[in-house]
Design a binder for these strands. Structure first.
Lengths: 180, 180, 180, 180
DNA sequence: CATGAATGAGCTTTCATTCAT
DNA sequence: GATGAATGAAAGCTCATTCAT
């Protein structure tokens, strides 16, 4: 993850990865047949951790609104260094998804799963309220939320100094709730 | 642009770029000292075109709200193949901004300029209305809009099939206007 | 050494070096990070051998004069083909010292060490004799001797046919001893 | 001269030479068919200037000893920046003489001419004195003087800081005169 | 005389992958 | 499991030389 985040996929050579992990190039290829396999493993790892973060927050959320907020917080309320590296790695992965078919498939699978999750969360929220949004509108809102989250990762990594401090989660919640 | 969009920065070799432009590798290096210079030229090119698109739409916009919509439409209401390639190239550029210092500087300059533009547009809109948002709130909203736009580029390129058709501009407008 | 001596530093391509050593270009770069590292290794190698030659001759030298002669003989009484290649390589190294900072540093270190050695040897010689030379004069003589030795390498390589046969060691000894 | 002195023959590209001379690459090749021709022209130029320096000093020298000193001074009593560049260029030329046949031929011609000159000057000196040196000894001395001069150029360029200030001409004169 | 775009072969260096040990 | 030397095919870049203008 560190090599991919700091060097990018192409420049994260097996030698560099091996060094960062205090292993030898030969051993890397003993466990992963190709370099792409390492990236795939990383994608799944990051996704699992993100899901775990959401599940942890879900446990204390009792209302639909609270559950939606839990999702947003799990996605955007990051803080420490490990998170920063993970976000940088995720942006790298997103860029690789353009070019590598297998990476794209897995990436799209994760996007689809998150879209489904968001659709469910939003549907619950609208039911609790007046329920003025129809299914296509909810799906559009879910898609937009996902885009915003991905865009926040992107801007946090490449232009973090220009963004307001810790604005992301709070602002997205306000935006979505005023729209529901 | 085509080579960068379809192959990514690292895989867009001078050979590949030369072939796409029907030139020889030597000639590429006669006009650009380094490969990075090509990318820098591309960034400025794409930004200029994006600005031109916004200015064109501005001419028929008479109210603050219309001007804000003009910005969103210029950014998101893309359609033809040329646009798709440009968006893909832009995502590639964003990813490179993580690693190459000079690219990051230019990229951040463009982000800052767009943030300023959005802040101005939003301030005009709030003045026209009740004006319940203070400056930090406007800046947070501007940042969020930029993130959403970048995220839409990202998802359109990597998971376009999963997104609703032409949802982006319309949904972002609705979201922002319900928030103002 | 052979590639550098016969082709010069710039023309001694990694390919050429690899071929001469019956290796592949990739392997050269596995052991040496840059081409300059190869040159640095060569410099140290040649210097070590030259020092060893001097030490060997020192063992049978019992008087200060004999030790000075040992130095001159070690430096100039060369004969076989291996020596010729080494001398040619050394001339190439001297020329590279003009341009490459790291090479110059090492080269200057060797020059300084030899100057110190010669100063010590000459001081011993003058003590044995009447001792009419002061320290600056001895240092000037040492510098001149070093220049003569380097110049002999140069002329032997580029205009060997024009030089008298085996004149160098004998003439330098005569010159220095008539001066002391 | 500047390009060759500061960059070396291989790195002194036609483009670099053109830039230094405020000309265009095409025009260089209009006047010189190949890059080697430029070097040849430079060699002749430097040699002509060196000869002129000697002839100028000869005019005020009336005794054989004074004429020998005039030669040594013309060769070694250099001082300003132009000289430094010329010396550096000459060292570069000497190194090229190892590899390029035509360069070597011209270089050897200059060496031979200087050897003849020195033989004549030394012969005159010995006649004036007791004349204890025979022809082979004079030739050996001439060769050694030439080697010393070339070596001084070399060391002045690559390790000038380590050499005593302005020692060369004075020390060589002392050495030779104590030997005659 | 003069320009400078253009060529193509060459350079050093990087790297995923293999494999004998 | 683990090592690390070895390979060979790229990569970005340089440059003497040519040539249409």
């Amino acid at each position: 993850m560190e090599a991919m985040a700091h060097l990018g996929y192409e420049k994260a050579s097996i030698q560099a990865i091996a060094k960062a992990a205090d292993l030898t190039p030969g051993l890397i290829h003993y466990h992963f047949k190709t370099k792409q396999e390492i990236l795939v493993e990383l994608i799944n790892n990051l996704n699992d951790k993100a899901q775990a973060r959401f599940q942890a927050r879900l446990e204390t959320a009792t209302t639909p609104t609270a559950r939606l907020n839990a999702y947003i917080d799990a996605a955007l309320a990051l803080g420490n260094d490990a998170d920063e590296t993970a976000v940088s790695a995720w942006v790298t992965i997103s860029a690789q998804a353009i070019r590598q078919a297998e990476v794209r498939d897995i990436y799209q699978g994760i996007v689809a799963a998150n879209l489904a999750q968001l659709n469910a969360l939003l549907t619950d929220c609208t039911k609790e309220m007046s329920g003025k949004l129809d299914k296509p509108a909810i799906n559009a809102l879910a898609s937009m939320m996902l885009a915003t989250i991905e865009g926040c990762y992107q801007l946090a990594t490449t232009a973090g100094e220009l963004m307001p401090r810790d604005f992301a989660a709070k602002t997205l919640k306000a935006l979505v709730h005023s729209h529901l």
